[in-house]
């Protein structure tokens, strides 16, 4: 299973491609591609958004579903989704959902 990760151009925020071509800040709201065709579709939509200067650094990332929650395979992507594992009061890491990710 895959998700499309990116950073928003204007502020750099880590985002994921959600339903209807929207970029979401919470990985749990991202659209999961369960096969190669769906992954291609995500990439195509992402590339169009890149050309519209909405996002940069696009990357398809591996994920799995654990206890009903999306969990990236690589630690790097889990930290990206959860926020830094320090300064727990700031940013994404302050969200309740972040603690279960890393």
């Amino acid at each position: 299973m895959k998700l499309l990760a990116a950073n928003r151009l204007a502020d750099g925020e880590a985002v994921w491609l959600g339903p209807d071509g929207q970029w979401v800040e919470d990985i749990s709201a991202a659209e999961v591609a369960r096969d190669a065709d769906s992954a291609d579709r995500l990439e195509r939509i992402g590339h169009e958004a890149f050309l519209r200067n909405e996002v940069v650094d696009l990357e398809l990332i591996e994920v799995e579903i654990v206890n009903g929650q999306v969990r990236p395979a690589r630690l790097r992507e889990r930290i990206r989704a959860a926020g830094p594992s320090i300064h727990p009061g700031l940013g994404k890491q302050a969200r309740k959902s972040a603690f279960t990710l890393i």
Binding site: L9, D11, F50, R80, G83
Partner: peptide, 27 residues
């Protein structure tokens, strides 16, 4: 860059010359 007049490829060396990196969560 924000208006799309220049591409990311053109902009990246310019931002780096001004100390702006793109990291994991943000710039």
């Amino acid at each position: 860059r924000l208006s799309g007049e220049i591409t990311e490829e053109q902009f990246k060396p310019l931002r780096l010359m001004n100390g702006v990196y793109l990291q994991l969560h943000s710039y």
